[in-house]
Design a protein around this nucleic acid. Sequence first.
DNA 1: GTAGGGTTAG
Length: 784
Amino acid sequence: MAEVGCVPDRVTYNILLWGLLKNKHHDTIKMLLEEMDGKGCFVERMYQCLLALDSIFWVDNSNIITVKVEKSPNLYNKNIVDVTFTVRFKCENFGCEREDEFQPHISGYGGRDHKGLTRFMGGWTLLKEGTRLGGRFQNSPRYIPTWNGEYESFIKGNLSTEIEKVRSFTRSVVESIFLVWLHHSQLQMKMKMNILIKGTFIAPSFKNPFLFSAIQMISAPHLSMCQKITKLDDALQLFDQMSQRKPLPSVVKFNQLLQAVTKMQHYSCSIHLFKQMVAIGAPVNLYTFNIVIKCCCQMSCTRDGFAVVAYGFRRGFVPDVYIFSTLLNGLVLEDRILEAERLFKKLIKGKLCEPDVVMYSTMIKGLCKVGINDTAIGLLRLMDERGCKPDVMTYSTIIDSLCKDKMVDDALKLFNEMIFHKGIVPDVVTYSSLIRGLCNLSRWDDAVKMLREMEDERISPNVITYNILVDAFCKEGMVEDAEAVLNIMVERGKVPDLVTYNSLIDGFCLRGETKKAKEIFDLIRMRGLVHNVVTYNSLLNGYCKKSKIDEALHLFHEITEQRMKPDVITYNTMLQGLFRVGRYKDALELFNEMKAHIQIPPGAFTYGIVLEGLCNNHQVDEALSLFRLMSEKKLSFDIVMYNILIDGASKCGKLDIAKVLFNDLCARGLYPDVWTYNAMICGFCWEGLVRESKELFQKMAEVGCVPDRVTYNILLRGLLKNGQHDTIKMLLEEMDGKGFSIDASTCSMLIDRISIKSLDDSLLKLIGKLVPKEVKEAACLESI
DNA sequence: GTAGGGTTAG
């Protein structure tokens, strides 16, 4: 064929492969596969299956055999049914293995037809008692063989004969699946079925090394792009191979590769590959440009995205609605909503593209992001009027935003409108957002109702839904309930991820149970997951809050040992921890280290921590000099920074400093808030200057700064401390009128004064009204 | 055959 100039193609190779497989010409197959590899020919899926099948016979007794028949991506395509089978055997540590390790499990999933109805659902579950057949495959030509009755001898028998049994059993199971598949593909002509058998064979003493490498080859990316590229290295290797091929592969192949890299979030790598493509003259199209523009946007470089558009334009690629949506999304990601709006309007006015549901949804997301839900809803109405039907994503975006703004009832209204007026079916994301919204408002019953409704609608919660529930429980300190959710999710086949465990760590830390939190921390590693900075920060926070500074420092060093970078939150947490235990010098040292290591200089929040830490450690002068340094550096600071200093100064008995700072506010264009007044009043009381504190209390009301619960408590304690009892009754009555409660220390001071008769016991009734239940319990004051 | 939008943690 080749000699006469007729070049063999993919089909030729596959036919030949089939023949060689059938006749077990294994050595020739290897050569053929290599040749196919060189020419970029794909091994057809069916032959991949056969190769996998064949290799089953070569598995050693000490191996794990996994035959996974996976769901192919067109599960919801018309008239196509994909089947998933899983066969897993563990033959490791033969003889001492538990019986359930030998339980094969085979299951099947069906697809849906064009009406969205399930056409086929069925499968087998091989249980240890025997075989159960289900679904429509009951009339299959051959039953799956059963383990039934053989189990005892299996364990007790001679090792080599038992291995043979495992082998023949495995073989017959896989053969059966195969026959069923063939049978059905012949019987139901209209219903196509795809079956993919993936083999993972870990074989230290593989009896047929050739087939092992053959299997590796068929799962290599360059031979089967249909299989997912999961590693960046594979993608890069594939790119090299592709770019050396003559002629160069099609633009589709390059786009698929570029998209795979992008999906792995290696955005800069994708951009680099695109540049390479341009350099070697590889084919590109609008799809390519869109992928690259998306990468720019995801890296918060939408500017570059626009530049790529301009470059494409020069090469004759006119941007379409996809490109514009990507750019719009980029602006939204960078919080440049005004510019996004401008672009959006310009596109419509200039008729540069007809906005579709994605573009409208993207703009809606932007509006939601800046909290203008009303405008977002307005746009939702507008798109509908203009004949562009919103979909579940459009509605979910707004529903989620309303939930985040605690407007869950409005969200529910929109939710009902979506279902009953628009006939749009909510999905797992819609439900997850609503459940989160309800949980955040502690509307547990409604959240449970929503979860039930979701299950009634046969929408199964995903990992994110479960994580929302886990997190909600943890935030309430109800870690046991969170763990119960975790167990349910595992039972339902969902694998808990890092987010799940991080929430649990937070939950335990909130309750001060750092030991338990550490157990979860270690569990993460045992589950094969890798800690991230969030994990470390959560546990660090727990240690710091409990003043376990040595553990915290140890963990802090571990971050860099694990080749991770502590972030702003890590440093903030550590600083608070060090200040808390009085190690302010170490804290300042760490603060300097932070400035050297963090890319973005520390912001107001960090400075606030340092200032407060110094004040709490009676280092007011140090705090003040840092404060001056801050103003020299033109760091913008607000009233919060002043509040920290005024409070710190007055508590350290440096009222004059506090006064100077307080009087300085006006010149800085800042207005004192409740916190400022509270700090000053506290300072005056501390120094016994009751008249001044009363005056300030009057003044704040005059300037429109409403005294809060804290103000009243501070003033009350100040008056009690200084033996001024005349206005106490009045203040208590005012508090009662405003619905403010008194805190534990104020309460005990009041009771104390009553018991020594310096206060009238007629006040007891009023006090009883003002004491919250927890304080009563804590102070053993149930009697009042 | 290949491209764009919505849900979770410190």
